[in-house]
Design a protein around this nucleic acid. Structure first.
Lengths: 125, 125
DNA sequence: TGCCTATATTGACGTGCGTCAAATCAGCTG
DNA sequence: CAGCTGATTTGACGCACGTCAATATAGGCA
């Protein structure tokens, strides 16, 4: 019980601290700085190949996938790596090397924050 | 009761029929076609100026604003018009001319669809 | 009709981005 | 160590995009 990961209470390699990103888009106008920061996340999903890669990772078992499992999206392997890097830089994915392979997994808090931004007030309110 | 808009049960100029866009990103891998279509919406919000414009419209009373009310985002007037067109083409905004002014309003169903795409399965599931 | 304001369109310019081939780095295995 | 596979980085190319000034269109008003 010493080297096995029994207590994932805190994960050192996951940033997991970008939660205070932004309010819902309809709550108040975004400041220039908020918009600058947030636009990067939306832009990361604004490419068809990246969207497929993200979907492949997110729909994989445990929200995690090896690069070799998701490289069949119609572009060259360096291009896949390039897009995965973009998604990682945007905070949407995290990567971890395990032996020969590199695994990417979704960053749930960041994705959830994006979803909350798109929440609109109820019609009746 | 003839020319006043008393029954907005169906709005002819609003598309309002893009609901069957895509499943949640984590449900199954996106097809190339789904990714192509969806990426346009995320790309539309992937620019800081557009994000501010969208936020300005969404946070305005009734989710609707005149162009003159939201043109102060640091770029020229033609650029504002260009970005609003992009948001409209992406289906996120609709526009309507009322006399001298043009009003933009959010397309709630499309925004809601984007939000649902970002819904992740619960950790325990 | 003519003028003024509001918004959209056109055309041009520079930058950013997606893409690939080639080279490099990382880790396993013989 | 050599050699192999998986993944990233580098460099180059072409296209798409954000931006603006200039122009055009639309609608009110004198």
């Amino acid at each position: 019980m010493s080297n096995t990961k029994v207590l994932p209470l805190l994960e050192p390699e996951a940033p997991a601290a970008e939660a205070p990103c932004c309010p819902p888009l309809a709550e108040r106008p975004f400041t220039a700085e908020e918009a600058e920061r947030t636009a990067k996340m939306f832009k990361a999903l604004g490419d068809p190949v990246r969207l497929r890669l993200f979907s492949l990772v997110a729909s994989h078992e445990g929200g995690e996938a090896c690069v070799c499992d998701i490289s069949d999206v119609g572009v060259s392997q360096p291009t896949v790596s390039h897009h995965l890097k973009k998604l990682r830089e945007a905070g949407l994915l995290t990567s971890e090397r395990r032996g020969t392979w590199v695994y990417y997994k979704v960053a749930p808090s960041v994705v959830a924050a994006m979803g909350q931004m798109l929440a609109l007030p109820r019609e009746g309110a």
